[in-house]
Design a protein around this nucleic acid. Sequence first.
DNA 1: TTATACCCCGGTTATCCACTGGGGTATAAG
DNA 2: CTTATACCCCAGTGGATAACCGGGGTATAA
Lengths: 145, 145
Amino acid sequence: MELSCKSEYALLALLELTAHFNSGEPLQIRQIAAEQSIPDRYLEQLLATLRRAGLVRSQRGAKGGYVLAREPWKITLLEAINCIEGLDSQSSDAGREAKSVEGMVIWEVWQEARQAADAVLQKYTLQDLADQRDARRQLDFMYYI
Amino acid sequence: MELSCKSEYALLALLELTAHFNSGEPLQIRQIAAEQSIPDRYLEQLLATLRRAGLVRSQRGAKGGYVLAREPWKITLLEAINCIEGLDSQSSDAGREAKSVEGMVIWEVWQEARQAADAVLQKYTLQDLADQRDARRQLDFMYYI
DNA sequence: TTATACCCCGGTTATCCACTGGGGTATAAG
DNA sequence: CTTATACCCCAGTGGATAACCGGGGTATAA
């Protein structure tokens, strides 16, 4: 029940890509890493995961980099977090039948809690976060004056 | 975002204590461990944590064991899980200010998701789970006939 | 052709989880 | 008072994962 460093890095990178989405130009790992103080070689792996999941698209060679594969208002936080946190193997039904009755009841309640959290993450898109960031920046600016 | 083995063991033990709450007699680690197939020496540590958190009370010596410190309908799952999962050091406000604006926005959304999950866990008490278990057992029994 | 920037794979250190074990201490029963 | 019981504290181990670092390969624009 904790936001891993991994997920936060990935979201930060996605937000950076969202900010540059309108330009049409790809963003490079070094730029994202420098902007958000993320170790670049590590970020590279996370972006590779996002690419394999189909959330971003990459361009190799000179003038290469990353762009969002879809519009930022069509990518939810749930999608982003799930794909880097790895939802593949153990979830839902598999490996959950050989338990006691108590185990089943506990598991069902836990599922309900997890779904509640997922619902929150699903209602926010990358665009929403970018908007919130802009609003926050505006606030900070006014406070500075 | 995953139910750890630790938490599940603790909840199973608490449910066992809930079932024997009316008898007034303390339950021993060996009994709980045998009933739910939990390694007993490991369960011992979890119960020690629950005791330090004030959720269960222990009696040492012969005829000793554990009892719930409060009535089972006054102990929520959120309490139980939080105390064994360790909510102590890093949460809420500490260590979260030296971040970028993006980091803050991400953190706030995450908090909202976590609170949604917590709300679900808070509305269920140990008694609720025990009742659900009984209902489930009844169903299984009828199915068996 | 060459510089660029992604791609793949493997290693390292630290941390945590699930679990085991040894020895100590309080308590009820005889 | 002794003794068996059952909790108490602390320390260690194997495996898994997280967060990184680094080397070398490959595609692409200039």
